[in-house]
């Protein structure tokens, strides 16, 4: 398992993925800084009402977290959708899986290696985001306690970990292209499901709300993100701006959903392992 994890890790280093990701991240962070700075100076100019100022600046920082978690999700998907399928297709797997290593350990090793990568990246991005916000101070981020920040980080990390579980399931079941389409489709389903769920609850339509819930169960990634913003801004008083993409709303996910996400990750890994054990590779 460790050998596979190490090889997966090394692969990302050698293939210069880090370089590419680094460039993308750098450009992203510069843009984010500029936008935040610009938006903030606008706000300070019209600093009439404290409420409006707070609303706007919270909105900006929510957007920052929103795009950052999307970036992490995107990179996680890119790094993992092909990780098993490409080795299956090329035949690299033939000589790996016939060595004294359990198929289970191959899957777990892949998960471990990719998880370390994405977690490290997420921590880095989260820290960068906080630094930007602490310097520019668009919102109340600086007033958050350490506990909230750590909790936020945990949710920030949880999302790529959940995506990774889905992605490896997909990668061990389909060809690379199909695998990518599958994961992205499910990810988008979650985004739409989140909005549907909020619309449903806003217009008090039970059916719409339920459809939203079901898609959130299939694709709980948006839920995790909403949990994250809820941790930060849930008590700030912005409770009904559901048209803001992925904003917090009066349908803050329950603790049950957090437990569900953990079950989702573990369940998917177990299913992947079982399926992969039975699979004919040849």
């Amino acid at each position: 398992m460790i050998s596979i994890a190490l090889a997966t890790f090394k692969e990302a280093l050698r293939k210069k993925i880090f370089l590419l990701v680094g460039i993308i991240t750098f450009i992203y962070l510069v843009l984010l800084t500029l936008i935040t700075y610009y938006a903030c100076s606008q706000n300070t100019a019209s600093k009439g009402s404290f409420d409006i100022y707070m609303m706007a600046s919270s909105f900006i920082s929510i957007l920052g977290f929103y795009f950052s978690s999307m970036l992490v999700a995107f990179l996680t998907i890119m790094a993992s959708v092909g990780s098993i399928s490409s080795e299956t297709e090329s035949g690299i797997l033939h000589s790996i899986i016939t060595r004294p290593i359990k198929r289970r350990d191959y899957i777990l090793g892949k998960y471990l290696g990719l998880a370390i990568l994405t977690v490290l990246y997420s921590i880095f991005l989260y820290a960068a985001l906080l630094i930007i916000y602490l310097v520019i101070q668009p919102s109340l981020v600086h007033s958050f306690g350490t506990l909230v920040l750590v909790k936020g980080l945990l949710f920030f990390i949880l999302e790529p970990l959940a995506i990774l579980a889905l992605s490896l399931y997909s990668s061990s079941s389909f060809k690379t292209l199909g695998s990518g389409i599958f994961v992205i489709a499910i990810y988008i389903l979650g985004l739409i499901g989140g909005i549907v769920e909020q619309v449903g609850s806003a217009v008090s339509s039970d059916t719409v709300y339920k459809i939203g819930i079901i898609s959130s169960l299939i694709s709980p990634f948006d839920v995790i993100y909403r949990k994250l913003t809820n941790t930060f801004f849930g008590n700030v008083g912005m409770t009904n701006s559901f048209f803001v993409p992925g904003s917090i709303s009066n349908t803050a996910p329950s603790t049950f959903m957090t437990i569900y996400v953990f079950a989702y990750i573990i369940g998917l890994i177990l299913i992947t392992v079982r399926k992969f054990k039975k699979k004919d590779i040849g």
């Binding site: 090889a7 035949g91 033939h94 000589s95």
Partner: peptide, 9 residues
């Protein structure tokens, strides 16, 4: 084991 379609990283 040397596979017939040998392919390596």
């Amino acid at each position: 084991y040397l596979p017939e379609n040998f392919k390596y990283q």
